[in-house]
Amino acid sequence: MKSLQIEVFICRSDNFGVLLHCPETGETASIDAPELDPIVKAAEKRGWTITHVFTTHHHGDHVEGNLALKEKYGCEIIGPRNEAAAIPGIDRTVGDGDEFTFGKRPVRVIETPGHTAGHICYYLPEDMILFAADTLFALGCGRLFERSALDMWHSLQKLAELPDETIVYFGHEYTLSNARFAVTIDPENARLRSRAELIEMQRKRGDFTIPTTIGFEKETNPFLRAGEPDIRRTLGMEGATNDEVFAEIRKRKDTF
């Protein structure tokens, strides 16, 4: 079976546009639809026709292009069952544990409430690829708009259970700010300090910081490391629960 092909580009100001293409079937999925023109240009550059949109949540910067893409390509829009009423042009709803086929491969839906109430991620187990959108970023996680810190902590733990080799595509180029914040929370983490230095160089060159891996995030992302003694000491929260530590980290990032 031929490998899936992925094209990454910028939409709006800092949204990642991501196209997923199967060379065997010719299917192409846009992961969310932040902005029409960059998506169309990326598809035309590769000679791909968009057949699907995999919507992760209802925020405007992720669904703005839905109707225009459907009008242009007649593509099928798949999205979260619990946010269906807010997803423009939705054709098929999916929820936690559902599977469907794309490019002869299973796609598993993982519900990750936190950033929004019905946010979902798409996981391709045969390829170990995760499209995490605004749940998990490189060295970060999404703001909590519609659900609690406890909900988001549980959602992140679901993603952390995936194989360490899982390749993660996320929704925004926030990594430089995330790195600068992360070292204030986990200053003794040598792997994190090294990664933060690399990210500074990447962004100076204008390079993207996508993708990451689950294993790399477990080693360096403070939002996945609330149980680590060093972080708890830094925050003065040695006796707190993991979700309480996570909530404090998220609160600090909101004002960083």
Results as ranks from 00 to 15, higher is better:
Ser3Thr: 10
Leu4Glu: 01
Ile6Thr: 06
Phe9Cys: 07
Phe9Leu: 13
Arg12Ser: 10
Asn15Arg: 14
Asn15Lys: 11
Leu20Asp: 02
His21Leu: 09
Glu24Thr: 01
Thr25Tyr: 09
Thr28Asn: 08
Pro38Phe: 02
Ile39Thr: 14
Arg46Cys: 08
Gly47Trp: 11
Trp48Cys: 04
Thr49Lys: 13
Thr49Asp: 07
Ile50Gln: 12
Thr55Glu: 02
Thr56Arg: 01
His62Leu: 00
Val63Lys: 02
Val63Thr: 15
Glu64Phe: 06
Gly65Trp: 01
Asn66Phe: 09
Leu67Asp: 12
Leu67Lys: 13
Tyr73Leu: 09
Gly74Lys: 13
Gly74Tyr: 12
Cys75Glu: 04
Ile77Cys: 10
Ile78Val: 13
Pro80Gln: 06
Pro80Leu: 07
Arg81Leu: 04
Asn82Pro: 11
Ala85Trp: 08
Ala85Arg: 10
Ile87Pro: 04
Arg92Leu: 06
Gly95Asp: 08
Phe102Leu: 12
Arg105Gln: 08
Arg105Asn: 04
Arg108Ile: 11
Arg108Phe: 09
Glu111Ala: 12
Glu111Val: 09
His115Pro: 10
Thr116Val: 10
Ala117Cys: 13
His119Gly: 13
Tyr122Gln: 05
Tyr123Lys: 03
Glu126Gln: 12
Met128Pro: 03
Leu130Ser: 03
Phe131Thr: 04
Leu136Pro: 07
Phe137Tyr: 08
Phe137His: 05
Ala138Lys: 10
Ala138Ser: 14
Gly142Asp: 01
Leu159Phe: 01
Ala160Ser: 15
Thr166Gly: 03
Phe170Val: 03
Phe170Ile: 05
Phe170Asp: 05
Gly171Arg: 04
Tyr174Met: 12
Tyr174Pro: 05
Ala182Lys: 11
Asp186Val: 07
Pro187Trp: 03
Ala190Asp: 15
Ala190Leu: 15
Arg191Phe: 12
Met201Thr: 12
Met201Trp: 03
Lys204Cys: 12
Gly215Trp: 03
Glu217Arg: 00
Leu224Glu: 01
Glu228Gly: 08
Asp230Cys: 06
Gly236Lys: 05
Thr241Met: 07
Thr241Trp: 02
Val245Asn: 01
Ala247Ser: 02
Ile249Ala: 00
Arg250Phe: 13
Lys251Glu: 08
Lys251Asn: 10
Phe256Glu: 08
